[in-house]
């Protein structure tokens, strides 16, 4: 039992445990910056997003109408045309595209973007060698994979992630994902490596999509900084995290990657199981 005085102290402490406070919105003059994102895979069409960075404390409007001149230089110079391209799987929108595909067996590819203010934005990406999963299996709430590292240390940056769907109590489908960033750039020989990812909700999924990406170092750092940036609304001490990338005179990433995808069926799972919440 809490005494009368004890309750007074408890109420006072609860009042004190309101740790948050809204601050005045400052006016911060942004530097003129452009945001460019382009992910390329061998034998896939060129798609690219080029927008302007919006001032943080003004109402955000995603403006795809800015008029850039966009070129990708592989074996030839390819001009990307302005239009809206919606990626079917994700709904992500690109505003520049081409009917040209990234040639296979190419070492690297460059980008040149001329902004509406005639600023020159450049980037270069190497093309990593194809990645192949050696094994991938699901045990309870854990997915274990194995794969061989590359003899080229520059090709030993990996992103390993799981995507799966689960149902909640009301029957609504929830998309879940788990990610691991694997840095093996110290290796310059072919070595079998293993990695695992787990998730409590995996027990409730019928199928798990396992993806292993071999990425460039720049993309690896960029993705990790994106991950940190996504945690911005979580008040952990790593915030703020500056965005990495390889865009000269702008922000974002221009990169090639390879990937291998497996779909694992959860044998023991009963279809339609719902999460305990």
């Amino acid at each position: 039992m809490v005494s009368r005085h004890g309750w007074v102290v408890l109420v006072f402490m609860c009042w004190a445990c309101d740790f948050n406070r809204e601050l005045e919105t400052p006016y911060i003059e942004p530097h003129d910056q452009y945001f460019v994102e382009c992910y390329m895979r061998p034998d896939e069409l060129y798609n690219l997003t080029a927008t302007e960075v919006s001032p943080i404390f003004e109402e955000y409007i995603l403006d795809y109408s800015l008029d850039f001149d966009v070129y990708i230089i592989d074996q030839d110079t390819v001009e990307l045309r302005q239009s809206l391209f919606v990626e079917p799987e994700t709904g992500y929108i690109y505003n520049y595209g081409s009917g040209r595909r990234l040639p296979e067996n190419i070492a690297g590819v460059s980008m040149l973007v001329i902004s509406p203010a005639r600023d020159t934005i450049r980037a270069y990406s190497r093309v990593p060698e194809q990645i192949l999963l050696d094994t991938a299996f699901l045990i309870h709430n854990q997915v274990n994979i194995s794969f061989y590292t590359s003899e080229d240390s520059e090709d030993n940056y990996y992103i390993y992630y799981l995507n799966y769907d689960v149902l909640n109590h009301s029957g609504a489908q929830i998309k879940k994902s788990e990610v691991a960033y694997l840095d093996f750039h110290d290796y310059s020989e072919r070595v079998l490596k293993q990695s695992s990812l787990s998730g409590d909700s995996l027990d409730y999924a019928d199928e798990v999509q396992v993806t292993l990406m071999r990425v460039t170092r720049e993309n690896f750092l960029y993705q990790r900084s994106l991950q940190d940036a996504k945690n911005a609304s979580k008040d952990n001490v790593t915030y703020p995290a500056p965005l990495e990338g390889n865009i000269e005179n702008g922000v974002g990433i221009f990169t090639c990657y390879t990937e291998d995808i497996r779909r694992l069926v959860a044998h023991e799972n009963v279809s339609g199981n719902s999460l305990p919440f």
Binding site: Q33, E37, S54, I56, E89, T90, K175, S177, L226
Partner: peptide
């Protein structure tokens, strides 16, 4: 604090638009 904001693709989570 950040001075700007952009929309980036989340390549590991197709559910994030």
């Amino acid at each position: 604090v950040p001075e700007g904001v952009a929309v980036a693709k989340d390549i590991t989570n197709p559910g994030t638009t």
